[in-house]
């Protein structure tokens, strides 16, 4: 049921560089197939949106891309920053932690930052400190130099504060630098989470429903922010979003998932006209027998703590 596989390149680039190359990824939780042979390519510098009804496997895809879940089949190749070589994140020691599975923090270090569907800040740290945590994962000084107050440690500390203020300015939260993250308004928390992700100097940023729970004005600001991240910072953006207006206005390309399978891929204008997409969103009378019988709704994968694969993957 490959309805449309439009491979329209990003408007400006002629021969796009690949950031994520996902081939035939299948992810199962016991008998439930969450992702079924999903393939997609993400190009450098584009805003790629993943859409689909609830339970379509969008967040599972995100978690697979960031190493939280390890898919049973398929391959995921990553070259997050410009000049990186495409490397498999599933079977490469560079992404292994102490234990033989893909380590989330190593993926982050190779240039993939993400935000969460249900905001996951560090609520008892201030906004500034939240961002500094992100910035400082790129620093080297250890506990001993911190205890002794070595000059290089002080320099790094200063740099991280400066960078964090820059990022606060970028997302428009300078005035709230010293407020606890948990005390910020919802929309501000969303922006702070994005700033924290940007602090880790990513080549790709994965935004999981950044507009959820925000009002129209905030949505417009958010769309503007995503564009600026994309253009000014040269960061490729992979976006999960339910708000069609937002998605259609900023995404260069879209991938549509339904019941764990990719049903369409293409430019916003094409997707809007795609019959399979319309069917998935509005329902059909008796079409799509395949999808209705083989795939079932996935378990709740939005909360990472409750996913079965997450249990084994914490370290």
């Amino acid at each position: 049921m490959t309805a449309v596989t439009s491979t329209a390149p990003e408007p400006t680039a002629t021969n796009p560089e690949v950031v994520y190359d996902v081939k035939d990824v299948t992810l199962r939780f016991g008998g439930v197939t969450s992702l079924n042979k999903v393939s997609l390519q993400m190009h450098r510098g584009e805003i790629l949106a993943v859409i689909g009804p609830n339970g379509a496997g969008k967040t599972s895809l995100f978690n697979s891309l960031t190493g939280v879940y390890t898919p049973q089949e398929g391959s995921i190749m990553l070259a997050a920053r410009k000049g990186d070589e495409l490397t498999s994140i599933l079977h490469d020691p560079r992404f292994y932690g102490a234990r033989k599975s893909t380590a989330t923090h190593l993926i982050n270090r190779h240039g993939v930052a993400r935000t969460f569907q249900n905001i996951r800040l560090f609520p008892a740290l201030t906004a500034l400190e939240n961002i500094k945590v992100g910035v400082e994962t790129r620093q080297k000084s250890g506990p001993v130099s911190a205890m002794l107050g070595m000059p290089w440690q002080r320099r790094e500390e200063r740099e991280s504060t400066e960078r964090a203020y820059e990022l606060l300015r970028f997302v428009g939260l300078t005035a709230r630098a010293n407020d606890l993250a948990g005390a910020l308004a919802y929309g501000e928390q969303r922006r702070l989470e994005i700033a924290r992700a940007l602090g880790t100097e990513p080549g790709v940023i994965l935004l999981d429903e950044p507009a959820a729970g925000t009002n129209p004005a905030e949505k417009r600001e958010l769309a503007e922010l995503i564009r600026r991240i994309n253009v000014e910072d040269n960061v490729s953006v992979l976006l999960i979003e339910h708000d069609m207006k937002l998605v259609m206005s900023i995404a260069h390309r879209l991938v549509v998932l339904n019941f764990g399978e990719k049903i369409a891929e293409g430019k916003p204008a094409d997707i809007q006209r795609n019959p399979a997409v319309i069917a998935a969103y509005l329902g059909t009378t008796n079409d799509e027998p395949e999808a209705a019988t083989t795939a079932q709704p996935e378990p709740n994968t939005t909360d990472l703590d409750s996913g079965p694969a997450a249990e084994g993957d914490e370290s």
């Binding site: 939280v68 923090h105 996951r120 400082e136 250890g142 506990p143 992700a197 880790t200």
Partner: peptide, 22 residues
């Protein structure tokens, strides 16, 4: 220091801390 904030981060939300590269 950096380490103190990292401790606070894993205490507050280990998954987020990991995703932030800690």
């Amino acid at each position: 220091s950096r380490l103190g904030r990292a401790w606070a981060a894993i205490r507050e939300d280990e998954v987020a801390a990991q995703a932030t590269g800690i």
